[in-house]
Design a protein around this nucleic acid. Sequence first.
DNA 1: CTCTATCTTGAATGTACATTCAAGATAACG
DNA 2: CGTTATCTTGAATGTACATTCAAGATAGAG
Lengths: 193, 193
Amino acid sequence: MRNAEFDREEVLRATMKAFMHKGYAKTSMQDLKKATGLHPGSIYCAFENKRGLLLAALEQYRLDRKTEFDKLFANSTLTMVNLKAYLDNIVLECVSCDSAQACLLTKALNEIAEQDSEIQQVISNNLSMLQQAIAEKFEQAKAEKSISTNKDCHHLARYFLMGICGLRTFAHTHPEAQVLQQLAEQLYHDVSQ
Amino acid sequence: MRNAEFDREEVLRATMKAFMHKGYAKTSMQDLKKATGLHPGSIYCAFENKRGLLLAALEQYRLDRKTEFDKLFANSTLTMVNLKAYLDNIVLECVSCDSAQACLLTKALNEIAEQDSEIQQVISNNLSMLQQAIAEKFEQAKAEKSISTNKDCHHLARYFLMGICGLRTFAHTHPEAQVLQQLAEQLYHDVSQ
DNA sequence: CTCTATCTTGAATGTACATTCAAGATAACG
DNA sequence: CGTTATCTTGAATGTACATTCAAGATAGAG
C-alpha cells in the first residue's frame, strides 16, 4: 500500500562509504543513520540488522564494480590496453585521498573474514567472480596475441588480483602517486610479458 | 620496591595474537585479560589504555620480526635463496590455519590506519624499515650477481613487499597451499629475473 | 621483622552501542 | 474522502564495553 521512500542502491552506496571509512566494527548505527539518512528502525526493517546491511552492501559493491568493469572493457582497443587502464584507475582511486575509495572487499576481508564464515564466503565468491572476469580478459588477450599462449590465464588473473590487493593495502602508507604508479607498471609488465 | 610480575614481551605477544585474531575494535578488554592473564588495572597501569597496548604490541612485533628476519638471512647460502625461503615461510604462515599468524601490520593498516594518524605513522615506519632491510638484501644479491645490476633495489623491495601484502590478504579467501605457493613462486620469479 | 612503595585485583562507573517498538505519517486504493 | 496497509520516527531498552579506583597483597629495604 506504500513504497519505501529511500533509494536502496543509494543507501547501500552510502553504507559502503561509511564502512570503508571507519571499518565495520567502528561504524555505529548513528554513523549509518547520518550516512544513509535512514533512521535505525528503517534500517532494521529493510536489512534486518547491521550485518545484513553489510551483506547487502557487499552485493551492491559487486554489482557496481561489475558494471564499471564491463564499461571499461567495452572500449574497442586492445584488451591489454584496457587492463592497463583498469590498473591505472585503481591507482587513481588509491591516490585520491578519498578514504571511501579503499575497497570494501579488502577492508572487510581483513577485518571480519576471520570471524564470520558466511561473510568470508560472500567476499570469497565476490573475488572469485572478479578473478574469473579478469581471466577471461587474459584469454582474450591471448587470442589477440598480446600475451604468450602458453600461460595459464587463471594463474595470471590470480596473480594480478593479488597485486591489486597488495597495492591497495600498500597505498595506505604510501599514498604517493608516483610510487604507486611505478608499482602498477611493474605489475602490468610482469603479467603481460 | 616491587617489580612487575608479568613478562612484558610475553604479554605483548599474547596481545598481538588477540588483535590479529579478532581485530582491534572487536577485541575487548576482557579478551585481552584472558589472552594476557593481566587484569584491566594492570594493563592500564603498564600501557595506559587499549591503544597504548596496540602501540606497544606493534613495536614488539617489529622487534620479533627483525630478529626472525636476521636469523633467516644468517644462513650462509646465496641471498636470493634466503629471500625465497623468507617467502616460503610467509606462505606457510598463511596456510597454517592459525589465524594468529596473519600479520599485525596488514591487519592494523586496513582496520585503523585511516582513523588514527599516529598509528598509521607507526605502521608506516614499521613497513619502511622492513622495506629497507629487504632492499639491502637485494643489494647483496646484486653484489653476488644473482640479479641484474641495473635494477633499483628500493623499487624491487617495494614491489616484493606489495606482493607479500597481497598474498596475505588473498590468503584469507584462498588458504590452499598449492595456490599460494604458486603465487609466491611467480613473485619470486618476477623480482629475481 | 617492619615498613613502605609498588603492584594486583575486580567490582563499580558511566558511556556508547545495537536493537526494539509503539505511535505517528503517508501513499495507494476504492 | 475514508480506510488500510505499510513505512517512518526516535525515544526506550538492555547489554557490553573501556576505564577508574580503592582495597588488598607482596617484594624489597632497612
